[in-house]
Design a protein around this nucleic acid. Structure first.
Lengths: 215, 215
DNA sequence: TTTATAAAACTAACGGCGCTAGTTTAATCG
DNA sequence: CGATTAAACTAGCGCCGTTAGTTTTATAAA
């Protein structure tokens, strides 16, 4: 088949199909031939739209980062903004855990990830955090969110109830974690995010970072 | 070459060579042929010692998890233990960031990771944390540590000083992050870990979890 | 309107991949 | 001592990312 009258592919269609395939079968299932087959074409046709397979994964990662809400940093106090952003960020990443290792390599030149970094840093500095600390907070939030989306804690344990008894005396109930996966992972994330913000508030108040703000 | 008088390979030698290769050139550089070449043999010989390439990666991951110190949970107050463990855990993982995505899939049946989970959970419960909360704390700590080791925050930014000016008004200094990589990443991790523990201490005190302990 | 160029699909093929089967020889067990 | 197991090997399967070159269509230039 030579060039068709209506293009079969577009960057958007490729990104959507790659995202679906990554979610359904993991990063390892994404080959150019397989992805092309999902789109009804042959493998090399993808190279008319992306230079490499890695560029496709970059585009998938950025389309996910672009879905994270960041407007709250322009309007809300930093604690409220950080909490809302953290939940939005985690929701976006946890919906696509298989791409997280790729996404966590940093923003690079991807506009979605860069707009997020810009909004977070700008919002924290506006609220009185020293620039170096604002950088640290942006970093540690990415650590926490990426780590929580990377792999479910609860699903990491074996479901065989007899497996732990002998060698791991405190893990006798660990086989029950997978069946409560969502509540364990969300409970852990919420506990951690709240603790982080409480702990940062102690520092913020202790050093009086908020005392020169007009509100 | 048929069976040699002295075996050329062992599980330990393979794990060591795989770790070195992963650290030096990344997960993608590890092919059975390449790894075998580093060991002076041909690819298929590895299958006399491991059933699949994935089992090799599992063994690498567990040898790293086994290096994390966990003795403090038997002797120290939970805050001090959590802080020391967090730093030891991060040190071990950050030395091998390329294997973190594999490691963060959970302990599975790997003894090193399971001993760690057992010690952490047991220590927290002994200090009065309710079992569900102890699980959450183990989980959120893994989130934070794995996320921090997964990808350097500071190295994720482009070094070109003109790149950010136009579109990202708050990131005008971001091009300087990579040159301060270690201090930024360690500063962010320490700030976050301290904040987490401070925040958890508020909860611990508020609910009086420590009030029935004999010390 | 004609002509030139660029775009988007294709086929064929290269070297590398994980892994299996079958072979050879040495070590070990009964 | 004979039988079995272990540890290296070679050959090869089907899949991988990517490149080169082909064909046809859409678009831009003259």
């Amino acid at each position: 088949m030579p060039r068709p009258k209506q293009a079969l592919l577009s960057r958007e269609r490729i990104i959507a199909a790659a995202t679906a395939l990554i979610d359904a079968e993991g990063l390892a299932a994404v080959s150019t031939r397989r992805l092309a087959a999902e789109l009804g074409v042959r493998g090399p046709s993808l190279y008319n739209h992306f230079a490499t397979k890695d560029e496709i994964l970059d585009a998938v990662a950025d389309s996910i980062a672009a879905q994270v809400e960041i407007g709250m940093f322009a309007t809300e106090p930093w604690q409220k903004a950080l909490k809302a952003w953290g939940h939005s960020y985690r929701t976006a990443l946890a919906a696509h855990p298989n791409i997280v290792p790729h996404l966590a390599q940093g923003p690079g030149r991807r506009p979605g990830a860069l707009r997020m970094a810009d909004a977070v840093y700008g919002g924290l500095v506006r609220e009185g955090w020293p620039p170096a600390r604002a950088t640290h907070i942006g970093a540690l939030m990415r650590y926490f969110v990426a780590g929580s989306a990377l792999g479910s804690f609860a699903r990491g344990f074996v479901e065989d109830p007899t497996f732990y008894a002998e060698d791991y005396p405190h893990l006798t109930q660990a086989h029950r974690l997978p069946e409560h996966q969502r509540s364990v992972d969300e409970g852990a994330f919420t506990l951690g995010l709240d603790a982080l913000i409480d702990g940062l508030t102690l520092t913020y108040d202790q050093f009086g970072y908020g005392k020169n703000l007009r509100r």
